[in-house]
Amino acid sequence: MNTNIESVRRPKYINPYFGGVLLGLLLLLTMYITGRGLGASGAVKSAVVTTFDKVAPVHTESSTFYSKFISDSHSPMFNWLVFESLGIFIGGLISGAIFGRLKKIRVEHSPKISSKTRLWAAGIGGILFGIGSQFGRGCSSGAALSGTASFSFGGFLVMMLLFGTGYIVAYFFRKLWI
């Protein structure tokens, strides 16, 4: 019978500092090749535009926000961030496969709440994040990470406020996590 020393099995993650160095070098390489940093939220935006262009083309064209992203020659999905985000997914798949994390569909949550609560929180968090990312001109990867690395004031500002707000708010939502 296994004693409870082994009750907490640590999954294999790489050393975070090592991961950080790799990520930093990747960011540097990206900036060297493309002149821009990495990003992620832009792909979802493209998806929104594409969907609504298909579903309600007239509305999309007349919308002041969407119209900027539509082009006659190609689908809005045909852009850099979409391909990069696809790559993120694939990279996650590869890493998950290597480290044995590809398992059945599951929900991860604090022992103190239920799966359903967690899913609701994820959804609401996603909505908030989606709205915020548009105002912030990027998410934590695009604005905070790449922005700060390229010495953009906006990027630095978003980084400080994003994580700062997280810390302040953490206390009120602690039930979700610990």
């Binding site: 590809l102 929900v107 996603g126 994040f129």
Partner: peptide, 30 residues
């Protein structure tokens, strides 16, 4: 304002866009 809203979203949702794609990749429903 955007960063503050994102801070809430980050904390409540527990992900950001890039990491959520990797989460999907390994099968996380959340």
């Amino acid at each position: 304002i955007g960063a503050i809203i994102m801070g809430f979203g980050f904390l409540i949702g527990g992900f950001c866009p890039g990491t959520s794609y990797t989460g999907i990749a390994i099968g996380k429903l959340d």
